[in-house]
């Protein structure tokens, strides 16, 4: 039950968030395959941002054995997902939506919101349908920590991407807790704790 990677694409066909775990064969990843959570690799083509310069130092364009850089990977994933989603719509009508596909070695789960925000998760083949999980990530993490954060942009013209720490922390604990299937209620508690630390809720009857 392994989660390999997670992508978010916005409605302008840009990749605004990438997170990869378990990259055994990436030459620049210092962690072993036994580690569960990696430092996030956020996508940014903005030269001024510090995460971007770290990314450029670490990523070789072709890497060892012809492995792709993170950005190329994201572009290919987007291409696949976009083409398949259009194919499904063409074959069975605009209401239908592509949910997942499986190859011999991995499974890709897809969820698209009404605002054309696309969430993609790559896992091993044994995982069941994770559309619900992607929906939860959207509702409980993306909307709460990214959309409602006035300092994080909604449009990403320079390829800035999502760089909200609370979102990343929430995502990490959510994914890590997915694996041995504990009750989702525990995650909710964590999120509530975070919110209480960083937000003031005014409740007046």
């Amino acid at each position: 039950m392994t989660i390999y990677s997670f992508y978010i694409f916005d409605r302008h066909c840009e990749c605004i968030y990438v997170k990869q775990w378990h990259q055994r064969d990436r030459s620049f990843r210092p962690t072993s395959s036994a580690s569960t959570v990696d430092s996030p690799v956020t996508l940014s083509s903005d030269q001024r941002s510090s995460t971007s310069s770290k990314l450029q130092n670490d990523v070789h364009p072709t890497g060892r054995g012809g492995r792709l850089s993170v950005q190329d990977d994201a572009k290919l994933v987007f291409g696949v997902v976009f083409s398949l989603r259009n194919m499904v719509r063409k074959l069975s009508g605009p209401d239908d939506s592509f949910i997942s596909y499986r190859t011999g070695s991995y499974k890709l789960h897809y969820y698209e919101t009404a605002t054309n925000l696309k969430f993609v998760l790559l896992t091993d083949v044994k995982m069941n349908n994770l559309k619900v999980v992607l929906h939860q990530i959207y509702v409980n993490l993306y909307v709460e920590f990214v959309t409602k954060n006035p300092l994080s942009p909604i449009e990403h013209p320079g390829g800035e991407g999502v760089a909200v720490e609370l979102f990343e922390m929430g995502l990490d604990s959510f994914i890590v807790n997915l694996r041995p299937h504990p009750p989702l209620r525990r995650i909710q508690t964590n999120l509530v704790l975070n919110r209480e630390q960083y937000r003031i809720d005014i409740k007046v009857s």
Binding site: T113, T115, L117, P150, I154, E155
Partner: peptide, 19 residues
Amino acid sequence: YNIGLRLIEDFLAKTNMGK
């Protein structure tokens, strides 16, 4: 307008509505 760009996500998340 800027509020609306964000509000729609919260709306979709809370009401679970499709298109």
